[in-house]
Simulated assay, not measured.
Amino acid sequence: MRLLLLLSALVGFAATQFGDCNPLKISGCPPDKGLTNSPYSVDFTKGTTDWASWTSIGTDSVLYTSQGAVLTINKKGEAPTIATNWYIFFGRVEVVMRAAPGTGIVSSVVLASDDGDEIDWEFLGGNNDEVQTNYFGKGNLTLYNRGGKTPVHDVQGTTHTYTIDWQMDQLTWSVDGNVVRTLKKEDALGGLNYPQTPMKLRIGSWAGGDPDNAPGTIAWAGGLTDYTKAPFTMYVEKVSVTNQNPAASYSYGDASGSWESIVLKKDDAAAAVGR
C-alpha cells in the first residue's frame, strides 16, 4: 500500500515526496538540508524534544512525556506526525516505539525523498502481532509486490526497536537486532526502483480505516475505524540516526534519480559521495 499517497489527503503533502519540489520533474529545486552531526540520537522520554531537528506536522498536537513522544488520534481527521528537519543519504535509523491500537489505525515509520523513494515500517492497529515493511523507487506504483509481513509479538503493548539499515547495495529491516527482511539493489527492478536519494524521517499515525477513504485503503488498514473507541495512541521513546554521508546540504545534479547524481555540500564546496 502506498503510504504517502494515502496520507496526502489527510495532511496535505504531495503523494510522492516530502517537499513541494520534485527535482526529477522541476528544475531549480532548493537543496535539502543534511544531517551533519552524525550519529544523532534523541530520547523523547525526557519530556522535551530537539526542536532544531524535529517538526510537528499539521495541527494535531504531540505530547512529550516520560513515555516518550505521545502521538494520539482522538477524533476523525487527526494524523499526529513528527518529521526531521534534515535528510540523510544512506545510513541507519533505529526507532524504539509502541504502535497504536485500533481497527483501521496505522502507525508508521517512513524514510522518503523528494523524488519518490521510500522505505517503510507500518503497523495496523487491528493486528497486535505483526509489522509490515515496504519500499518504493521514484514513486513507481506499477507493481504491488514490494510489501512484506513479519510476526512480532505485542507491538502495541511491548516496546521494540525497529531498524532500517539503508546502504548503497542492500537494505535491511530488523526488529530488536534481528534481521527480518533484506532487499538487494539488483532485486528492485534491476536497481531502478531501489531507494537511493536523500531522505527525511517521518513518524506518525493516521486512520486508514476512516470511512471517507477508498474501499481498498480501508480494507488494507483492517476495516473501518470506530472513533468512539478513541483515543488511539502511539509511543515513540527514542530515535537514533547515522548518516553515512553527512553534509550541510544535498542537491540533484541531474534528473536521473541515481545516487551518483547527488551533490553534497560540506561547507562551501561541493563534493561527490565518499570524498
Rank of each mutant, 00 (worst) to 15 (best):
S66D: 06
R92Q: 14
A52E: 14
A99H: 03
T65R: 06
I82K: 01
V62Q: 06
T59A: 11
V95P: 15
N74T: 14
E94R: 10
W86S: 10
G68Y: 03
M97W: 10
T81S: 09
A99I: 07
Y87R: 14
A79H: 08
A69S: 07
Y64E: 06
S66T: 12
N74Q: 15
A52W: 00
V96F: 13
M97F: 14
A52T: 15
S66W: 02
S61Y: 11
P80L: 04
T55P: 00
W86L: 09
Y64D: 03
S53E: 11
Q67V: 04
V96E: 10
T49Y: 15
L71R: 04
V62D: 08
N74E: 14
W86A: 10
V96S: 13
D60M: 01
T84F: 04
W86E: 12
I73E: 00
S66F: 07
T72A: 11
T81V: 14
L71D: 07
Y64T: 12
I57K: 09
A79D: 09
I82Y: 00
S53V: 14
P80I: 05
A52R: 13
P80G: 03
S53R: 14
I73V: 04
T65L: 07
T48C: 05
D60I: 01
T81H: 04
Y87D: 15
E78A: 02
S53M: 15
F90M: 13
W54Q: 03
V70F: 00
T65A: 03
R92A: 11
A69C: 01
A52C: 00
T65M: 02
G68N: 07
N85C: 03
E94D: 12
N74R: 13
G91F: 12
W51M: 03
E78S: 06
F90V: 10
L71S: 05
